[in-house]
Nucleic acid binder design. Sequence first.
DNA 1: CTACAATTTCAACAAATGTTGAATGCGTAA
DNA 2: TTACGCATTCAACATTTGTTGAAATTGTAG
Lengths: 216, 216
Amino acid sequence: MTGETKKQEKRDSILDAAEALFARHGYDGVTLRAIAKQAGVDVALANYHFGPKRDLFDAVLMRRAQILNSWRLQALEDVIAKAAPGAPTVEEIIRSYFEPVLKRSQVEQEGWKSYYALIAYVNNSPEWGGKLMTQFFDPLIQRFIEALRMALPAVPDKNLYWGYHCLSGALTLAFAQTGRIDHLSNGLCRSDDLSDACDYIVDFITAGFSQMDEAQ
Amino acid sequence: MTGETKKQEKRDSILDAAEALFARHGYDGVTLRAIAKQAGVDVALANYHFGPKRDLFDAVLMRRAQILNSWRLQALEDVIAKAAPGAPTVEEIIRSYFEPVLKRSQVEQEGWKSYYALIAYVNNSPEWGGKLMTQFFDPLIQRFIEALRMALPAVPDKNLYWGYHCLSGALTLAFAQTGRIDHLSNGLCRSDDLSDACDYIVDFITAGFSQMDEAQ
DNA sequence: CTACAATTTCAACAAATGTTGAATGCGTAA
DNA sequence: TTACGCATTCAACATTTGTTGAAATTGTAG
Protein backbone atom coordinates (compact mmCIF):
# COMPACT_ATOMS: atom_id res chain seq x y z
CA MET A 1 0.00 0.00 0.00
CA THR A 2 2.76 2.38 0.94
CA GLY A 3 4.61 1.19 -2.11
CA GLU A 4 1.65 1.89 -4.32
CA THR A 5 1.29 5.36 -2.85
CA LYS A 6 4.98 6.07 -3.17
CA LYS A 7 4.83 4.92 -6.73
CA GLN A 8 2.18 7.46 -7.61
CA GLU A 9 3.76 10.24 -5.61
CA LYS A 10 6.06 11.70 -8.22
CA ARG A 11 3.58 11.08 -10.96
CA ASP A 12 0.99 13.13 -9.11
CA SER A 13 3.44 15.87 -8.28
CA ILE A 14 4.07 16.25 -11.99
CA LEU A 15 0.35 16.61 -12.61
CA ASP A 16 0.08 19.16 -9.82
CA ALA A 17 2.94 21.22 -11.11
CA ALA A 18 1.71 21.04 -14.69
CA GLU A 19 -1.78 22.05 -13.60
CA ALA A 20 -0.56 25.12 -11.75
CA LEU A 21 1.80 26.25 -14.49
CA PHE A 22 -0.49 25.57 -17.46
CA ALA A 23 -3.25 27.46 -15.65
CA ARG A 24 -1.10 30.52 -15.20
CA HIS A 25 0.88 30.65 -18.44
CA GLY A 26 -1.07 28.59 -20.94
CA TYR A 27 0.11 25.56 -22.85
CA ASP A 28 2.90 27.21 -24.83
CA GLY A 29 4.04 29.37 -21.95
CA VAL A 30 5.23 26.39 -19.94
CA THR A 31 8.28 24.22 -20.53
CA LEU A 32 8.66 20.65 -19.40
CA ARG A 33 11.73 21.74 -17.50
CA ALA A 34 9.74 24.29 -15.51
CA ILE A 35 7.19 21.61 -14.64
CA ALA A 36 9.89 19.14 -13.63
CA LYS A 37 11.65 21.73 -11.50
CA GLN A 38 8.49 22.67 -9.62
CA ALA A 39 7.69 18.99 -9.12
CA GLY A 40 11.22 18.29 -7.88
CA VAL A 41 11.78 15.72 -10.56
CA ASP A 42 13.95 15.12 -13.61
CA VAL A 43 12.79 16.38 -16.99
CA ALA A 44 12.60 12.98 -18.57
CA LEU A 45 10.16 11.64 -16.01
CA ALA A 46 7.21 13.55 -17.40
CA ASN A 47 7.79 11.95 -20.75
CA TYR A 48 8.11 8.53 -19.18
CA HIS A 49 4.74 8.76 -17.45
CA PHE A 50 2.65 10.73 -19.91
CA GLY A 51 4.36 10.68 -23.29
CA PRO A 52 4.66 13.90 -25.27
CA LYS A 53 3.85 17.29 -23.79
CA ARG A 54 0.42 17.48 -25.33
CA ASP A 55 -0.62 14.22 -23.69
CA LEU A 56 0.44 15.55 -20.31
CA PHE A 57 -1.82 18.54 -20.89
CA ASP A 58 -4.74 16.25 -21.66
CA ALA A 59 -3.98 14.16 -18.59
CA VAL A 60 -4.20 17.28 -16.43
CA LEU A 61 -7.55 18.20 -17.94
CA MET A 62 -8.93 14.68 -17.58
CA ARG A 63 -7.92 14.16 -13.97
CA ARG A 64 -10.64 16.33 -12.47
CA ALA A 65 -13.15 16.47 -15.32
CA GLN A 66 -15.30 13.52 -14.24
CA ILE A 67 -15.43 14.68 -10.64
CA LEU A 68 -16.49 18.14 -11.66
CA ASN A 69 -19.13 16.84 -13.99
CA SER A 70 -20.55 14.48 -11.39
CA TRP A 71 -20.88 17.32 -8.89
CA ARG A 72 -22.97 19.36 -11.24
CA LEU A 73 -24.97 16.54 -12.73
CA GLN A 74 -25.90 15.36 -9.26
CA ALA A 75 -27.08 18.83 -8.24
CA LEU A 76 -29.08 19.25 -11.42
CA GLU A 77 -30.79 15.87 -11.13
CA ASP A 78 -31.60 16.56 -7.49
CA VAL A 79 -33.30 19.80 -8.41
CA ILE A 80 -35.25 18.19 -11.23
CA ALA A 81 -36.31 15.25 -9.08
CA LYS A 82 -37.40 17.47 -6.23
CA ALA A 83 -39.68 19.50 -8.49
CA ALA A 84 -41.14 16.52 -10.37
CA PRO A 85 -43.58 16.13 -11.92
CA GLY A 86 -43.41 19.90 -12.41
CA ALA A 87 -40.42 21.92 -13.59
CA PRO A 88 -37.88 23.46 -11.22
CA THR A 89 -37.61 27.22 -11.04
CA VAL A 90 -35.02 29.06 -13.09
CA GLU A 91 -33.15 30.05 -9.97
CA GLU A 92 -32.93 26.45 -8.79
CA ILE A 93 -31.49 25.38 -12.12
CA ILE A 94 -28.96 28.19 -12.26
CA ARG A 95 -27.94 27.55 -8.70
CA SER A 96 -27.36 23.89 -9.47
CA TYR A 97 -24.88 24.97 -12.12
CA PHE A 98 -22.82 27.36 -10.01
CA GLU A 99 -23.02 26.23 -6.41
CA PRO A 100 -21.53 22.76 -6.80
CA VAL A 101 -18.34 24.25 -8.20
CA LEU A 102 -18.13 27.61 -6.43
CA LYS A 103 -19.34 26.75 -2.94
CA ARG A 104 -17.55 23.46 -2.40
CA SER A 105 -14.94 23.49 0.34
CA GLN A 106 -12.38 21.66 -1.77
CA VAL A 107 -12.32 24.66 -4.00
CA GLU A 108 -10.34 26.49 -1.36
CA GLN A 109 -7.47 24.16 -2.12
CA GLU A 110 -4.93 25.42 -4.59
CA GLY A 111 -5.35 22.45 -6.90
CA TRP A 112 -8.96 23.11 -7.77
CA LYS A 113 -8.38 26.82 -8.16
CA SER A 114 -5.65 26.12 -10.66
CA TYR A 115 -7.87 23.65 -12.45
CA TYR A 116 -10.63 26.21 -12.76
CA ALA A 117 -8.20 28.74 -14.18
CA LEU A 118 -7.10 26.11 -16.65
CA ILE A 119 -10.68 25.48 -17.71
CA ALA A 120 -11.08 29.22 -18.21
CA TYR A 121 -7.97 29.24 -20.37
CA VAL A 122 -9.21 26.38 -22.52
CA ASN A 123 -12.78 27.62 -22.83
CA ASN A 124 -11.63 31.01 -24.02
CA SER A 125 -9.02 29.78 -26.45
CA PRO A 126 -10.04 29.93 -30.11
CA GLU A 127 -7.63 27.08 -30.68
CA TRP A 128 -9.14 24.59 -28.24
CA GLY A 129 -12.29 26.16 -26.87
CA GLY A 130 -14.52 24.75 -29.56
CA LYS A 131 -13.26 21.19 -29.44
CA LEU A 132 -11.91 20.35 -26.00
CA MET A 133 -14.78 21.81 -24.00
CA THR A 134 -17.27 20.06 -26.24
CA GLN A 135 -15.57 16.76 -25.62
CA PHE A 136 -15.63 17.08 -21.84
CA PHE A 137 -18.72 19.01 -20.92
CA ASP A 138 -21.30 18.84 -23.67
CA PRO A 139 -23.55 16.10 -22.29
CA LEU A 140 -23.97 17.93 -18.99
CA ILE A 141 -24.67 21.24 -20.67
CA GLN A 142 -27.27 19.80 -23.01
CA ARG A 143 -29.02 18.34 -20.00
CA PHE A 144 -28.80 21.72 -18.30
CA ILE A 145 -30.32 23.61 -21.21
CA GLU A 146 -33.03 21.01 -21.44
CA ALA A 147 -33.96 21.80 -17.84
CA LEU A 148 -34.10 25.49 -18.64
CA ARG A 149 -36.35 24.70 -21.59
CA MET A 150 -38.71 22.94 -19.21
CA ALA A 151 -38.77 25.91 -16.89
CA LEU A 152 -39.20 28.42 -19.71
CA PRO A 153 -41.35 26.64 -22.30
CA ALA A 154 -42.38 29.79 -24.15
CA VAL A 155 -38.84 31.04 -24.74
CA PRO A 156 -37.20 30.40 -28.15
CA ASP A 157 -34.12 28.20 -28.17
CA LYS A 158 -31.98 30.95 -29.59
CA ASN A 159 -32.53 33.05 -26.49
CA LEU A 160 -31.71 30.11 -24.28
CA TYR A 161 -28.42 29.45 -26.05
CA TRP A 162 -27.29 33.07 -25.94
CA GLY A 163 -28.31 33.08 -22.31
CA TYR A 164 -26.07 30.12 -21.75
CA HIS A 165 -23.33 32.02 -23.52
CA CYS A 166 -23.63 34.86 -20.99
CA LEU A 167 -23.71 32.42 -18.12
CA SER A 168 -20.68 30.59 -19.41
CA GLY A 169 -18.77 33.82 -19.92
CA ALA A 170 -19.46 34.95 -16.37
CA LEU A 171 -18.35 31.63 -14.94
CA THR A 172 -15.28 31.46 -17.14
CA LEU A 173 -14.12 34.89 -16.08
CA ALA A 174 -14.72 33.99 -12.44
CA PHE A 175 -12.65 30.84 -12.93
CA ALA A 176 -9.80 32.83 -14.41
CA GLN A 177 -9.34 34.80 -11.18
CA THR A 178 -7.37 37.55 -12.85
CA GLY A 179 -7.63 39.92 -9.91
CA ARG A 180 -9.13 42.51 -12.20
CA ILE A 181 -12.34 43.05 -10.25
CA ASP A 182 -10.29 43.45 -7.07
CA HIS A 183 -8.50 46.41 -8.53
CA LEU A 184 -11.58 47.81 -10.25
CA SER A 185 -13.67 47.75 -7.07
CA ASN A 186 -10.85 48.95 -4.82
CA GLY A 187 -10.85 45.65 -2.94
CA LEU A 188 -14.60 45.53 -2.38
CA CYS A 189 -14.87 42.39 -4.51
CA ARG A 190 -12.25 39.64 -4.45
CA SER A 191 -11.80 37.42 -7.46
CA ASP A 192 -10.38 34.60 -5.33
CA ASP A 193 -13.46 34.41 -3.10
CA LEU A 194 -15.53 32.25 -5.40
CA SER A 195 -18.03 31.37 -2.70
CA ASP A 196 -18.90 35.02 -2.17
CA ALA A 197 -19.05 35.70 -5.89
CA CYS A 198 -21.46 32.82 -6.40
CA ASP A 199 -24.53 34.49 -4.88
CA TYR A 200 -24.12 37.68 -6.86
CA ILE A 201 -23.58 35.83 -10.10
CA VAL A 202 -26.51 33.47 -9.56
CA ASP A 203 -28.89 36.39 -8.96
CA PHE A 204 -27.62 38.21 -12.01
CA ILE A 205 -27.84 35.25 -14.36
CA THR A 206 -31.22 34.14 -13.01
CA ALA A 207 -32.61 37.57 -13.83
CA GLY A 208 -31.22 37.33 -17.34
CA PHE A 209 -33.12 34.13 -18.01
CA SER A 210 -36.29 35.14 -16.19
CA GLN A 211 -36.66 38.25 -18.29
CA MET A 212 -36.96 36.08 -21.42
CA ASP A 213 -40.23 34.72 -20.15
CA GLU A 214 -41.67 38.12 -19.30
CA ALA A 215 -40.71 39.48 -22.70
CA GLN A 216 -42.86 36.93 -24.53
CA MET B 1 2.49 60.45 -49.91
CA THR B 2 2.90 57.20 -51.77
CA GLY B 3 6.39 57.00 -50.32
CA GLU B 4 5.10 57.50 -46.84
CA THR B 5 2.48 54.84 -47.38
CA LYS B 6 4.99 52.42 -48.84
CA LYS B 7 7.24 53.00 -45.90
CA GLN B 8 4.53 51.90 -43.48
CA GLU B 9 3.37 49.02 -45.60
CA LYS B 10 5.64 46.28 -44.29
CA ARG B 11 5.47 47.64 -40.78
CA ASP B 12 1.71 47.37 -40.85
CA SER B 13 1.73 43.94 -42.40
CA ILE B 14 3.83 42.78 -39.47
CA LEU B 15 1.26 44.20 -37.07
CA ASP B 16 -1.54 42.53 -39.00
CA ALA B 17 0.15 39.16 -39.00
CA ALA B 18 1.09 39.43 -35.34
CA GLU B 19 -2.47 40.41 -34.43
CA ALA B 20 -3.99 37.43 -36.21
CA LEU B 21 -1.50 34.93 -34.84
CA PHE B 22 -1.38 36.21 -31.27
CA ALA B 23 -5.17 36.19 -31.21
CA ARG B 24 -5.34 32.56 -32.24
CA HIS B 25 -2.39 31.04 -30.40
CA GLY B 26 -1.56 33.42 -27.57
CA TYR B 27 1.71 35.19 -26.92
CA ASP B 28 3.87 32.15 -26.35
CA GLY B 29 2.25 30.12 -29.10
CA VAL B 30 3.58 32.39 -31.80
CA THR B 31 7.14 32.71 -33.08
CA LEU B 32 8.59 35.77 -34.72
CA ARG B 33 9.37 33.60 -37.71
CA ALA B 34 5.72 32.63 -38.09
CA ILE B 35 4.75 36.29 -37.98
CA ALA B 36 7.43 37.24 -40.49
CA LYS B 37 6.42 34.46 -42.83
CA GLN B 38 2.74 35.43 -42.78
CA ALA B 39 3.72 39.06 -43.33
CA GLY B 40 5.99 38.13 -46.22
CA VAL B 41 8.97 39.70 -44.54
CA ASP B 42 12.32 38.75 -43.04
CA VAL B 43 12.48 37.76 -39.38
CA ALA B 44 14.81 40.57 -38.42
CA LEU B 45 12.44 43.26 -39.61
CA ALA B 46 10.05 42.85 -36.70
CA ASN B 47 12.87 43.49 -34.32
CA TYR B 48 14.01 46.53 -36.30
CA HIS B 49 10.60 48.19 -36.12
CA PHE B 50 9.33 47.15 -32.73
CA GLY B 51 12.27 45.91 -30.66
CA PRO B 52 11.87 42.71 -28.65
CA LYS B 53 8.91 40.37 -29.06
CA ARG B 54 7.08 41.65 -26.03
CA ASP B 55 7.11 45.21 -27.38
CA LEU B 56 5.59 44.00 -30.63
CA PHE B 57 2.78 42.44 -28.62
CA ASP B 58 2.16 45.74 -26.85
CA ALA B 59 2.23 47.60 -30.16
CA VAL B 60 -0.50 45.32 -31.48
CA LEU B 61 -2.63 45.96 -28.42
CA MET B 62 -2.09 49.70 -28.56
CA ARG B 63 -2.87 50.16 -32.22
CA ARG B 64 -6.64 49.85 -31.91
CA ALA B 65 -7.12 50.55 -28.21
CA GLN B 66 -7.73 54.29 -28.52
CA ILE B 67 -10.16 53.86 -31.39
CA LEU B 68 -12.12 51.26 -29.49
CA ASN B 69 -12.23 53.37 -26.37
CA SER B 70 -13.36 56.45 -28.25
CA TRP B 71 -16.23 54.53 -29.84
CA ARG B 72 -17.58 53.48 -26.50
CA LEU B 73 -16.88 56.69 -24.63
CA GLN B 74 -18.69 58.65 -27.34
CA ALA B 75 -21.73 56.38 -27.14
CA LEU B 76 -21.81 56.57 -23.37
CA GLU B 77 -21.52 60.34 -23.27
CA ASP B 78 -24.23 60.66 -25.90
CA VAL B 79 -26.60 58.59 -23.80
CA ILE B 80 -25.80 60.55 -20.65
CA ALA B 81 -26.16 63.90 -22.39
CA LYS B 82 -29.45 62.94 -23.97
CA ALA B 83 -30.96 62.00 -20.63
CA ALA B 84 -29.62 65.01 -18.73
CA PRO B 85 -30.41 66.32 -16.24
CA GLY B 86 -31.89 62.94 -15.36
CA ALA B 87 -30.17 59.57 -15.53
CA PRO B 88 -30.28 57.32 -18.61
CA THR B 89 -32.02 53.97 -18.38
CA VAL B 90 -30.07 50.84 -17.61
CA GLU B 91 -30.73 49.51 -21.07
CA GLU B 92 -29.40 52.65 -22.71
CA ILE B 93 -26.20 52.40 -20.70
CA ILE B 94 -25.71 48.70 -21.43
CA ARG B 95 -26.42 49.27 -25.08
CA SER B 96 -23.79 52.00 -25.22
CA TYR B 97 -21.25 49.47 -24.00
CA PHE B 98 -21.98 46.71 -26.50
CA GLU B 99 -23.35 48.28 -29.65
CA PRO B 100 -20.37 50.47 -30.53
CA VAL B 101 -18.14 47.43 -30.70
CA LEU B 102 -20.49 44.67 -31.84
CA LYS B 103 -22.67 46.50 -34.38
CA ARG B 104 -20.02 48.49 -36.18
CA SER B 105 -19.51 47.60 -39.82
CA GLN B 106 -15.72 47.61 -39.52
CA VAL B 107 -16.07 44.68 -37.19
CA GLU B 108 -16.84 42.49 -40.18
CA GLN B 109 -13.24 42.98 -41.27
CA GLU B 110 -10.82 40.30 -40.20
CA GLY B 111 -8.53 42.75 -38.42
CA TRP B 112 -11.03 43.84 -35.83
CA LYS B 113 -12.24 40.31 -35.25
CA SER B 114 -8.69 39.22 -34.54
CA TYR B 115 -8.22 42.18 -32.25
CA TYR B 116 -11.32 41.28 -30.28
CA ALA B 117 -10.11 37.73 -29.90
CA LEU B 118 -6.81 39.10 -28.67
CA ILE B 119 -8.57 41.25 -26.09
CA ALA B 120 -10.44 38.17 -24.95
CA TYR B 121 -7.16 36.32 -24.60
CA VAL B 122 -5.59 39.09 -22.55
CA ASN B 123 -8.62 39.73 -20.38
CA ASN B 124 -8.88 36.08 -19.44
CA SER B 125 -5.20 35.53 -18.79
CA PRO B 126 -4.22 35.38 -15.11
CA GLU B 127 -0.80 36.55 -16.18
CA TRP B 128 -1.84 39.78 -17.89
CA GLY B 129 -5.57 40.17 -17.31
CA GLY B 130 -5.16 42.12 -14.12
CA LYS B 131 -2.54 44.57 -15.34
CA LEU B 132 -2.86 45.10 -19.07
CA MET B 133 -6.62 45.55 -19.19
CA THR B 134 -6.45 47.96 -16.30
CA GLN B 135 -3.90 50.04 -18.11
CA PHE B 136 -5.94 50.33 -21.29
CA PHE B 137 -9.59 50.33 -20.32
CA ASP B 138 -9.99 51.38 -16.69
CA PRO B 139 -10.93 55.02 -17.18
CA LEU B 140 -13.76 54.11 -19.54
CA ILE B 141 -15.07 51.38 -17.29
CA GLN B 142 -15.07 53.57 -14.19
CA ARG B 143 -17.10 56.11 -16.14
CA PHE B 144 -19.43 53.33 -17.24
CA ILE B 145 -20.01 52.06 -13.72
CA GLU B 146 -20.58 55.62 -12.56
CA ALA B 147 -23.38 55.88 -15.09
CA LEU B 148 -24.91 52.66 -13.80
CA ARG B 149 -24.68 54.03 -10.28
CA MET B 150 -26.69 57.05 -11.41
CA ALA B 151 -29.34 54.87 -12.96
CA LEU B 152 -29.49 52.52 -9.95
CA PRO B 153 -28.88 54.74 -6.93
CA ALA B 154 -30.27 52.28 -4.39
CA VAL B 155 -28.05 49.39 -5.45
CA PRO B 156 -24.89 48.64 -3.42
CA ASP B 157 -21.57 49.01 -5.22
CA LYS B 158 -20.70 45.39 -4.66
CA ASN B 159 -23.65 44.29 -6.76
CA LEU B 160 -22.70 46.72 -9.49
CA TYR B 161 -19.15 45.44 -9.66
CA TRP B 162 -20.18 41.79 -9.81
CA GLY B 163 -22.70 42.78 -12.43
CA TYR B 164 -19.91 44.29 -14.43
CA HIS B 165 -18.01 41.06 -13.98
CA CYS B 166 -20.86 39.14 -15.61
CA LEU B 167 -21.14 41.69 -18.37
CA SER B 168 -17.42 41.57 -19.03
CA GLY B 169 -17.39 37.78 -19.07
CA ALA B 170 -20.19 37.65 -21.62
CA LEU B 171 -18.44 40.15 -23.86
CA THR B 172 -15.09 38.47 -23.49
CA LEU B 173 -16.46 35.10 -24.50
CA ALA B 174 -18.23 36.67 -27.46
CA PHE B 175 -14.96 38.29 -28.49
CA ALA B 176 -13.16 34.97 -28.34
CA GLN B 177 -15.37 33.50 -31.06
CA THR B 178 -14.49 29.95 -30.22
CA GLY B 179 -17.31 28.45 -32.27
CA ARG B 180 -18.53 26.65 -29.19
CA ILE B 181 -22.06 28.06 -29.23
CA ASP B 182 -22.35 27.14 -32.90
CA HIS B 183 -21.81 23.50 -32.11
CA LEU B 184 -23.87 23.60 -28.93
CA SER B 185 -26.90 25.12 -30.65
CA ASN B 186 -26.58 23.01 -33.79
CA GLY B 187 -25.87 26.10 -35.87
CA LEU B 188 -28.78 28.13 -34.52
CA CYS B 189 -26.38 30.68 -33.00
CA ARG B 190 -23.18 31.73 -34.73
CA SER B 191 -20.28 33.01 -32.69
CA ASP B 192 -18.92 35.01 -35.61
CA ASP B 193 -22.13 37.01 -36.05
CA LEU B 194 -21.43 39.56 -33.35
CA SER B 195 -24.10 41.94 -34.58
CA ASP B 196 -26.78 39.30 -34.08
CA ALA B 197 -25.41 38.27 -30.72
CA CYS B 198 -25.48 41.87 -29.51
CA ASP B 199 -29.24 42.16 -29.06
CA TYR B 200 -29.56 38.94 -27.11
CA ILE B 201 -26.65 39.80 -24.84
CA VAL B 202 -27.87 43.34 -24.22
CA ASP B 203 -31.30 42.11 -23.15
CA PHE B 204 -29.80 39.49 -20.88
CA ILE B 205 -27.33 41.81 -19.18
CA THR B 206 -29.88 44.60 -18.84
CA ALA B 207 -32.18 42.24 -16.96
CA GLY B 208 -29.33 41.28 -14.67
CA PHE B 209 -28.78 44.86 -13.61
CA SER B 210 -32.45 45.83 -13.47
CA GLN B 211 -33.22 43.03 -11.04
CA MET B 212 -30.83 44.59 -8.52
CA ASP B 213 -33.11 47.56 -8.20
CA GLU B 214 -36.24 45.47 -7.72
CA ALA B 215 -34.54 43.34 -5.09
CA GLN B 216 -33.94 46.33 -2.80
C1' DC C 1 24.04 61.51 -60.80
C1' DT C 2 25.80 61.53 -55.93
C1' DA C 3 25.74 61.01 -51.16
C1' DC C 4 23.39 59.90 -47.33
C1' DA C 5 19.95 57.90 -44.35
C1' DA C 6 16.27 54.65 -43.63
C1' DT C 7 14.65 50.17 -44.63
C1' DT C 8 15.17 45.32 -45.52
C1' DT C 9 17.66 41.09 -45.94
C1' DC C 10 21.33 37.80 -44.90
C1' DA C 11 23.94 34.89 -41.90
C1' DA C 12 24.88 33.52 -37.65
C1' DC C 13 24.88 33.41 -32.53
C1' DA C 14 23.93 31.44 -27.87
C1' DA C 15 20.31 29.74 -25.29
C1' DA C 16 16.36 26.96 -24.66
C1' DT C 17 13.11 23.37 -26.23
C1' DG C 18 10.93 18.47 -26.53
C1' DT C 19 12.49 14.08 -26.82
C1' DT C 20 15.32 9.84 -26.49
C1' DG C 21 18.52 5.91 -25.08
C1' DA C 22 21.57 4.30 -21.85
C1' DA C 23 22.71 4.04 -17.02
C1' DT C 24 21.38 3.91 -12.16
C1' DG C 25 18.52 3.19 -8.21
C1' DC C 26 15.00 0.63 -5.84
C1' DG C 27 11.28 -2.47 -4.26
C1' DT C 28 9.89 -7.31 -4.52
C1' DA C 29 9.46 -12.22 -5.18
C1' DA C 30 11.94 -16.47 -5.34
C1' DT D 1 21.15 -13.07 -1.32
C1' DT D 2 19.94 -12.97 -6.21
C1' DA D 3 17.59 -11.64 -10.04
C1' DC D 4 14.25 -8.99 -12.21
C1' DG D 5 11.04 -5.20 -13.49
C1' DC D 6 9.64 -0.67 -12.74
C1' DA D 7 10.85 4.11 -11.67
C1' DT D 8 14.09 7.69 -12.01
C1' DT D 9 18.10 10.15 -13.41
C1' DC D 10 21.85 11.38 -16.53
C1' DA D 11 23.71 13.04 -20.71
C1' DA D 12 23.00 14.23 -25.08
C1' DC D 13 20.53 14.96 -29.62
C1' DA D 14 18.57 17.81 -33.30
C1' DT D 15 15.48 21.83 -33.69
C1' DT D 16 13.78 25.95 -32.77
C1' DT D 17 13.86 30.22 -30.36
C1' DG D 18 14.78 35.56 -29.97
C1' DT D 19 18.20 38.55 -31.11
C1' DT D 20 22.14 40.89 -33.40
C1' DG D 21 25.67 42.96 -36.60
C1' DA D 22 27.01 43.40 -41.19
C1' DA D 23 25.68 43.65 -45.90
C1' DA D 24 22.48 44.91 -49.49
C1' DT D 25 18.64 47.49 -51.12
C1' DT D 26 15.68 51.35 -51.48
C1' DG D 27 14.15 56.08 -51.06
C1' DT D 28 15.37 60.93 -50.98
C1' DA D 29 17.60 65.50 -50.84
C1' DG D 30 21.25 68.32 -52.94
